[in-house]
Lab assay of single mutants.
Amino acid sequence: TFYNFIMGFQNDNTPFGILAEHVSEDKAFPRLEERHQVIRAYVMSNYTDHQLIETTNRAISLYMANL
């Protein structure tokens, strides 16, 4: 899942690491979701930090390219 992918960046001092920290603390994050459209919609609806949203979009693109 995307959640498992992004958790691989925990403790990294990178934008993906920052995203992983936010996702791990977000109890409502769709952890079992595999459809990138649902993940993107969730982030757009629940996150207000523009940098975090952009990082999510980049992470989703990388995740999709590696499926």
Rank of each mutant, 00 (worst) to 15 (best):
T56G: 06
Q51I: 13
A20H: 03
Y42S: 01
L19D: 01
M44H: 09
R31H: 07
E54R: 08
F5N: 00
N46A: 09
I39V: 08
H50E: 14
Q37D: 14
R58K: 12
L67A: 12
D12N: 10
E33N: 04
H36D: 07
N46K: 08
E34I: 15
H22E: 04
I39G: 00
L19W: 02
R35A: 08
M64W: 07
D49E: 07
A65L: 13
L32F: 13
A20E: 02
I60T: 02
Q51L: 14
N11Q: 08
S24E: 08
T14W: 04
N4H: 11
R35F: 05
H50S: 13
H22P: 02
K27G: 09
R40Q: 11
M7T: 05
Q51P: 05
P15Y: 08
N11C: 10
P15L: 11
R58W: 10
Y63Q: 04
A28G: 13
S24A: 13
A28P: 03
M64L: 15
N66H: 15
T14S: 14
L52D: 04
S61G: 10
I6S: 01
Y3H: 02
H36V: 15
A65R: 10
A65G: 09
A28K: 11
Q51R: 13
Q37N: 12
A28F: 14
T14Q: 03
H50Q: 14
V38R: 07
R58M: 11
S61M: 14
S61N: 11
Q37C: 13
F16I: 04
E34R: 14
Q37E: 15
S45Q: 14
G8I: 07
D26S: 04
D49Y: 13
A65E: 12
D26I: 05
I60V: 06
R31Y: 06
D26Q: 06
A41Y: 09
E21A: 15
A41G: 06
N46Q: 07
F2C: 04
N13P: 12
E25K: 15
Q51Y: 12
D26R: 06
N57M: 15
D49K: 05
E25A: 15
T56S: 09
D12H: 12
F29Q: 01
